[in-house]
C-alpha cells in the first residue's frame, strides 16, 4: 500500500510541474505539439527512473561532500543513453527535442528527486517515486502541448481539426508558452481550491541546503 502511494503522489497531488513548479524550461520549450510533450515526458521518465534506482543503490557509497557531482554524472549517463536510443529509433522526435534532450541533465525535477527521495529510500519505493513523478511530468507536458497545438496550429496529435480555420499562431510561439502555463497553473489551483504558489519554491531545489542566494531574492 505504502509503495502505491509513492507512485500516485507524483501524478496529481505533488505534480512536479504544476504544483512543484520544477522543470519549467522543457515544459515551456518543447510543448508546441502534444506529441513532443509526450516524447519529452517519457524521455525524462526514463532518466528519472534510472537515476533514482542507481542513486538509491549507491546511497551508502557516495560520499556526502561530493554527492552533487556524482548525481549529475549518473544522470548525464542516462541522458546520453536515452539520446542514443531516440536517435536510433525515433529520429523525428530526436530532431524536434534538439538541445533540450541533453538539457534533461539539468532538469531540476531529476536532481530534486535524487536529493529528496532516492538518497534516503530503498530501491523499490525510489523506482516507483521516479516513475510517478515522471508520468506526472508527462501528463502536464501533454496538457500544455494539447492546448498550445489546438489553439496555435489547429491540430491535435498531428491530426487537423476541421472547424479551426485560422489558428492563433502566437500560442506556438514563446509568448504563448508562458501564457498557457500561467493559465494552467491558475486553473489547477482553482480546481484544487488552493492559493497559487507565490514564488518558485526553494524546497525542491537541489542546492537549497548550501545556497545563500535565498536571502538575496529567490525567497523573500
Amino acid at each position: 500500500m505504502g509503495n502505491l502511494k509513492e507512485f500516485t503522489k507524483g501524478l496529481i497531488k505533488e505534480n512536479p510541474t504544476l504544483v512543484g513548479l520544477l522543470g519549467m524550461c522543457p515544459t515551456l520549450a518543447v510543448t508546441t505539439q502534444a506529441v513532443n510533450g509526450i516524447g519529452m515526458g517519457l524521455a525524462t521518465t526514463f532518466v528519472l527512473l534510472g537515476s533514482n534506482i542507481v542513486i538509491s543503490l549507491l546511497k551508502k557509497v557516495i560520499p556526502k561532500s561530493v554527492k552533487l557531482p556524482c548525481y549529475i554524472v549518473i544522470i548525464a549517463g542516462f541522458v546520453t543513453l536515452i539520446s542514443f536510443l531516440l536517435h536510433g529509433f525515433v529520429p523525428s522526435l530526436y530532431d524536434a527535442l534538439g538541445t533540450f534532450l541533453s538539457l534533461i541533465t539539468v532538469n531540476c525535477i531529476i536532481l530534486g528527486r535524487a536529493e529528496m527521495f532516492a538518497c534516503k529510500n530503498k530501491v523499490i519505493p525510489s523506482a516507483l517515486d521516479g516513475l510517478g513523478m515522471g508520468l506526472g511530468f508527462t501528463l502536464s507536458l501533454f496538457i500544455m502541448g494539447s492546448v498550445r497545438e489546438i489553439l496555435g496550429s489547429g491540430s491535435w496529435m498531428g491530426i487537423d481539426i476541421p472547424f479551426i480555420t485560422q489558428p492563433m499562431s502566437v500560442f506556438v510561439m514563446s509568448a504563448g508558452g508562458f501564457f498557457v502555463l500561467g493559465v494552467v497553473i491558475a486553473l489547477v489551483n482553482k480546481i484544487a481550491g488552493k492559493k497559487p504558489p507565490q514564488k518558485i519554491g526553494c524546497a525542491g531545489c537541489p542546492n537549497a541546503a548550501n545556497c545563500s542566494g535565498r536571502k538575496g531574492g529567490a525567497e523573500e
Binding site: 502566437v170 510561439m173 509568448a175 504563448g176 508558452g177 508562458f178 500561467g182 497553473i185 491558475a186 507565490q198
Partner: peptide
C-alpha cells in the same frame, strides 16, 4: 487565483511578446 506565479508567467508572456 492568478496571484503569484500565474500572473508572473502571464507578465513574462507579454515581455516575451515584445521581444518577438
Amino acid at each position: 487565483t492568478f496571484k503569484g506565479i500565474p500572473s508572473t508567467l502571464i507578465a513574462a508572456s507579454i515581455v516575451s511578446l515584445s521581444f518577438m
